[in-house]
C-alpha cells in the first residue's frame, strides 16, 4: 500500500487543529456570547405590551431607511434608583459574608479530609457530595422545617431548656446565611480538598525541622500554598451567591432584598424585560471584576515559572 499523500495528511492535521481550537470558541459563542448579545439587546429596548414584551432595536421604516433606537433609560434608572444599588450592595454583603463563612467552615473540613487516612477519604468526600443527589429545592425546603418557629431547631432548643419562646430565625437574614452556607459549602470544600491533597507533606516536616511550630507552619506554608484553592472555592461560592434567588425567596424575610429577587420581580411581576436585562448586565459586569482579579492572581502565581 502506498503511503497517503503528504499533502492530504497535512491538510487533515490542519483540519483537526482547526476543529480543536474551533470547538471551544464555538461553544463560547453559542452559549455565552449569543445569549449575552440577546440580553444586551433587550436591555437597550423599551418595554411594550406585545409579544415579545419589548420594542425592536431596529426597524425598516421606509425603503432604505433603517431606524435604530437605543434606550439607555434602563441603565440610568438602575444607576440612579437607590433601590437597585442597595439590593446590589446587600447581595454583595451576603455573598462576602457567606464566602467567608464557607471558607471558615470549609477549610478545616477540606483539611481534615485531605489529611485523613487514604481509605477514609472517598467516604468522607462522598458525605460532602451526597446531598447533591437530592434536589436543591427540597434541601432548602427542609431548612424551612428546621428553622420555623415550631420547627426542629426551636423544638430541640426548648426541650433542652435553652430558650423559652421560639427564636425567629426563618424569614430573617440569618436564615439566608444558614441556607446559603449550607448549600454552597461543598463548592468551597472540593477545590480546597483538591488543592490540599497535592500539598507535599514533607514541606510541613521541613518547616517543623527548621523550628516552626504547627500553627505557624500552617500560616506560613499550608495557607499560602493553598491560596489557589481558596481563590477557586471563594469564586465558586461568591459568584453564584451574588445572584442567588431561591434561598432568599424561601428562607429570607422581606428585608433580605437581593438583586436576584429584584431581577425576578422586574422580569415577572413588572414584565419589564428591558430593565431586568439591564440589571443582569450590570450584575455581570460587577462579577467580572473579581473574576479578572482572580485571573491576575493566578497569572502572577504561575507567571514566575519559566
Amino acid at each position: 500500500m502506498p503511503a497517503p499523500l503528504p499533502s492530504a495528511s497535512v491538510r487533515h492535521r490542519r483540519m483537526s487543529r482547526l476543529v480543536n481550537i474551533g470547538i471551544p470558541y464555538l461553544w463560547l459563542g453559542l452559549f455565552f456570547l449569543l445569549p449575552f448579545a440577546i440580553v444586551l439587546q433587550i436591555s437597550l429596548a423599551e418595554p411594550a405590551l406585545a409579544q415579545p414584551p419589548y420594542t425592536a432595536l431596529w426597524q425598516w421604516v421606509d425603503e432604505g431607511l433603517l431606524r435604530i433606537e437605543i434606550n439607555l433609560r434602563n441603565f440610568m434608572m438602575v444607576a440612579q434608583d437607590d433601590l437597585y444599588l442597595s439590593a446590589l450592595l446587600n447581595s454583595l454583603q451576603v455573598a462576602v459574608i457567606c464566602t467567608l463563612l464557607c471558607l471558615l467552615l470549609g477549610y478545616p473540613m477540606a483539611y481534615a479530609i485531605a489529611t485523613a487516612p487514604e481509605r477514609w477519604r472517598i467516604t468522607l468526600l462522598m458525605l460532602i457530595v451526597l446531598p447533591f443527589w437530592t434536589s436543591f429545592l427540597i434541601r432548602v425546603y427542609a431548612w424551612i422545617g428546621i428553622l420555623k418557629p415550631n420547627g426542629l431547631l426551636n423544638d430541640a432548643l426548648i426541650w433542652l431548656g435553652l430558650i423559652d419562646t421560639p427564636l425567629a430565625i426563618l424569614h430573617t437574614q440569618t436564615a439566608v446565611y444558614i441556607g446559603v452556607v449550607y448549600s454552597y459549602l461543598p463548592f468551597m470544600i472540593l477545590p480546597l480538598y483538591a488543592n490540599l491533597t497535592r500539598l507535599d507533606p514533607s514541606l510541613l516536616e521541613a518547616a517543623a525541622d527548621l523550628g516552626c511550630r504547627p500553627m505557624r507552619a500552617f500560616l506560613r506554608v499550608t495557607l499560602p500554598l493553598s491560596m489557589a484553592g481558596i481563590v477557586a472555592g471563594s469564586m465558586l461560592v461568591f459568584i453564584p451567591v451574588v445572584g442567588e434567588f431561591v434561598i432568599p425567596d424561601l428562607l429570607g424575610g422581606p428585608e433580605s432584598l437581593m438583586v436576584g429577587k429584584l431581577l425576578w420581580s422586574e422580569f415577572f411581576s413588572n414584565k419589564d424585560w428591558p430593565l431586568a436585562s439591564a440589571l443582569a448586565i450590570l450584575l455581570l459586569a460587577l462579577l467580572v471584576v473579581p473574576f479578572v482579579m482572580m485571573q491576575r492572581l493566578q497569572q502572577r502565581m504561575e507567571g514566575s515559572r519559566p
Binding site: 405590551l49 437607590d82 433601590l83 442597595s86 439590593a87 422581606p254 432584598l257 413588572n270
Partner: peptide, 19 residues
C-alpha cells in the same frame, strides 16, 4: 396601566425591604 402597575410594584419592593 402598565406604568402604574410598575410604579406600584417598585414602591412595594421598597416598602417590603424597608428601604
Amino acid at each position: 396601566s402598565d406604568r402604574e402597575i410598575r410604579d406600584l410594584n417598585r414602591l412595594w419592593t421598597r416598602l417590603k425591604a424597608n428601604r
